[in-house]
Design a protein around this nucleic acid. Structure first.
Lengths: 359, 359
DNA sequence: CAACCGCGTGATAGCGCTGTCAATATCGCT
DNA sequence: AGCGATATTGACAGCGCTATCACGCGGTTG
């Protein structure tokens, strides 16, 4: 004969309604949209709820309303600090709201991403934040089919699923290389690890810049599929020195690599920037503290997370989102490692000892 | 007269049951515990569910069963990479399980932590992972009252809420300082930022070691409440040099600070380790790549997250957790920045230029 | 002055699943 | 063969909330 559950001092909508002298549905309305309830009842309900210590049951709400208040966030890595900045922005934006964040790690795999997308979507999330623009066709399709706001973050692309916020990695790298060219560098190496889609777009920007300058040489490019690390920066740089000992600058697809290159230069007594200029990407905090200070491309990661979250909430709550594709831009932070007063002649880096070491 | 919702091709437990020729409750049992259903029906249900593309409705499950499958995780910071390693372990462990992780950021505030604890507990989570042992009394009480497994991570303490996994920060720092003393260092500085409870315990370990050696001097300690950063490492070191110019070693409460100190030494032409030994804490990846390589205290953060999650799952699923307090230990990774063959006489660091710089 | 609108409110009937208990089938044993 | 014990299975009645529709009421409209 069914369950005979005893629900002792449980506080439900009904209890609040009884105390406030209204119907349960009115209490429900009060919690979802106070404005639809007349002022008098509003006050009575409010105090009744407080007196009883009422806490809404989210599972019941989700079941009855057929939707959840979960925001799904898909990022490729939990270790890469680039994403922790974005995440902080997202969490800060949703802090105190009724939405809760469901975070998942795609590990840079589009297949994993599609699987997780599917997993999230079957729970009918209130919104979705996904990294990058390289979802599988299937993943795009099911995401588009789900009618919830979606923001793609970290980069820009021609065909947003819904909304988009990021910057052009191609342009960012192109600009960084242009800066090196303006400093008189001619043999500029490219170091990249992991080679996820965003790093590949940076490589594209590098190639564009070098080809435009008539300086492209495939031997200047050294990459690996292995995840990035400082140690890897040193290793990649060592490889590069074997392939192209005459380099006068290195662009690193991220700052960890750049730090590794700096250390390797110290090990090899290569003067930075006199013999070799270094430029990184992301502008992590340590770049400005290094000796010499390291040039990098600043990206607005915290703001990206913050605004992505805001766009989602605006969309959900019916506030029109006019800017559906937001370019957050970037800035080349020119520091000691790439700025020099010198002639535009190439000076190879293959020295065994530094002559005018600054550090 | 109630809703007349049209539920077109919706696949519920009932639909699967109809196709499989069993009752809905049997299908429900099949999904929760396949062993309780006879083999014949098991196969029929399995294929029926697959044919129909059945997806369980988690909200309905949570409402009916009065519990969720949410694991709450409370960490103090999303930026500090120490926690991203732990998180990675936690996410890896729960990957593919039925549990979903709810992450929240206490921002190093016990009040925030208590608020979030309350927030989580009212949703009846399946488990809870909290950072550290310094919850408010109120926070401890409500957490203990909730009957779900709880793991405190990152450190150890005398009175676990439920389970605990970490290591002794006091011992770890004591051991690191002992290493420096064994190397002949006498005037060992302590640099700390943020000064959260764990850093304070490291300071305690430092004080114990220095007092035991009869070398304690409060002027050797420089701390700040500001969050840690590489730049801050340089700043704190500069302060220390003003207060105690005769230091021959610096212990940094984390690796960012240590890197900042290294850079500041390069700026000031102080030879490491000849004039100044440096030891960090956490053993981030870059420590082994620096020039000179930097000594640090390795902690098993990934494993900590992994095992905390495993303990939670074991507890939930009725597998007895015998080791309810796990000491993961630590290891002093002795590297160039703190190892030297030299006499035990103090050599002050206040040089203006390096004589035998290695880098 | 009837028709109409919109606001605030309430009654009703689920949302899709599981706890509880009863019923039946299966088995081992005396 | 008879009996209790053990696995399987099912019926029923909610879990706590919200979608939907209905209604009353004051104010506008033609």
């Amino acid at each position: 004969m069914g369950r005979k559950r005893i629900t002792p001092g449980k506080v439900r909508l009904t209890e609040v309604a009884a105390l406030a002298g209204v119907s349960p549905i009115t209490v429900s309305r009060f919690f979802r949209n106070p404005d639809t309830v007349s002022a008098g009842r509003r006050l009575r309900i409010e105090s009744a709820a407080k007196d009883l210590g009422y806490v809404p049951n989210l599972a019941a709400r989700a079941l009855a309303s057929q939707r959840t208040e979960v925001i799904g966030v898909l990022i490729p890595s939990l270790t890469n600090n680039v994403f922790s900045d974005v995440l902080r922005g997202i969490y800060d934006a949703f802090e105190g709201s009724r939405y809760s964040i469901q975070l998942a790690n795609t590990r840079y795999s589009v297949l994993q991403e599609e699987r997780l997308l599917r997993l999230f979507l079957m729970q009918k999330p209130a919104g979705l934040i996904v990294t990058g623009v390289d979802q599988t066709a299937e993943g795009r399709a099911i995401t588009q089919a789900a009618d919830c706001p979606v923001v793609q973050i970290m980069e820009l692309g021609p065909d947003p699923i819904d909304m988009m916020i990021g910057f052009s990695h191609v342009d960012a790298c192109y600009t960084a290389i242009s800066h090196l060219l303006a400093q008189g560098c001619r043999r500029i190496g490219f170091l990249g690890a992991r080679m996820d889609p965003r790093v590949q777009r940076r490589l594209q920007g590098y190639q564009n810049a070098m080809k435009n300058a008539g300086l492209f040489d495939p031997r200047l490019i050294v990459t690996t599929a292995v995840p990035t690390s400082t140690t890897m920066g040193g290793n990649l740089f060592s490889d590069l020195m074997l392939k192209a000992p005459d380099i006068d600058a290195v662009f690193c697809a991220n700052d960890d690599l750049a730090l590794g290159v700096l250390f390797e230069c110290q090990r090899r007594h290569i003067a930075v920037p006199e013999q070799l200029a270094i430029v990184g990407f992301n502008d992590m905090e340590f770049m400005a503290a290094a000796v010499p200070t390291l040039t990098s491309v600043r990206t607005n990661r915290y703001e990206m997370g913050l605004r992505a979250a805001t766009m989602i909430m605006d969309e959900i709550e019916g506030r029109p989102v006019t800017e559906r594709v937001v370019d957050l831009g970037f800035e080349v932070m020119e520091r000691q490692s790439s700025t020099m007063q010198r002639s535009a002649t190439a000076r190879p880096a293959q020295a065994d000892r530094a002559s005018g070491t600054k550090w």
